[in-house]
């Protein structure tokens, strides 16, 4: 089983809801079978544009997870198929006013849990959906207990600031988990973030995401 990390975030304040709901838009990356998933009772209350972007974020997260081990892979969302989406309803949904949330695993949180197929492999996702953002994290096991993740609101949305903010956010967490402060991130030639401890490559896959006013990270604790 490959070890990797994959996440994505969509700032719902940035999307064009009208365009999202046009078949011409969403059929570019969602199949008819996937669209039909929205008719299930536990998804019927979800605005269709949220549903579309949740599927996008799950597919992009899966792509990031795989691409670490297949650098030449092109993001082809129609080939990553969402087979099932369940609602894990718990007492807590991250408050939309919360500027920052970090956790290990998703116990106690309301999440949409999908099973995804790519080729012969299956992947699993946890998506947090509120009226501000959709944040997805992917694993190749149903077990998310050892997955660290974080979501943070940022004020400045320029790409340079998003990039800097998500790195600082992730590195601060990594420093606390692994008790070291000499970590830094370099993107490899295929755009995949690689963690270094001093001059040495650290054996921890990390995934970064940013969109609009939100940044997010995910990484597994392999210790």
């Amino acid at each position: 089983m490959i070890i990797s990390a994959g996440n994505d975030i969509v700032d719902l304040g940035t999307i064009n809801a009208t365009r999202t709901k046009e078949p011409r838009f969403y059929t570019k990356f969602i199949t008819g079978t996937e669209t039909a998933l929205h008719n299930q009772p536990h998804l019927a209350d979800m605005p269709f544009e949220y549903f579309v972007w949740m599927l996008w974020s799950v597919k992009e997260s899966v792509y990031k997870f795989i691409q670490r081990h297949h650098p030449g892979l092109v993001f082809s969302p129609s080939k990553i198929t969402i087979e099932q989406i369940e609602l894990q309803r718990e007492a807590s949904i991250p408050a939309i006013t919360q500027a920052q949330i970090e956790a290990k695993g998703f116990a106690g949180l309301t999440t949409y849990n999908a099973i995804i197929a790519f080729g012969t492999d299956n992947f699993y996702s946890r998506s947090i959906v509120n009226s501000n953002y959709i944040a997805s994290t992917v694993n190749n096991s149903k077990d998310f207990e050892n997955i660290y993740w974080g979501i943070k609101h940022i004020d400045q949305t320029e790409p340079e600031n998003q990039s800097r903010a998500v790195r600082q956010f992730l590195l601060k967490k990594l420093a606390s988990v692994f008790d070291t402060d000499d970590l830094h991130i370099i993107k490899n030639s295929s755009g995949c973030p690689v963690l270094f401890n001093g001059d040495n490559r650290a054996d921890i896959p990390v995934s970064l995401a940013h969109h609009g006013h939100y940044v997010a990270y995910a990484f597994p604790n392999l210790q």
């Binding site: 940035t14 064009n16 365009r19 011409r24 992009e60 993001f75 969109h211």
Partner: peptide
């Protein structure tokens, strides 16, 4: 460009050139 805008670019290119771009 944020990847979330890739589909927008495809739709805008379809409109500009009056073409259809498939999967």
């Amino acid at each position: 460009i944020n990847s979330a805008n890739l589909v927008d670019i495809i739709i805008d290119a379809e409109t500009k050139y009056n073409i259809e771009i498939d999967y």
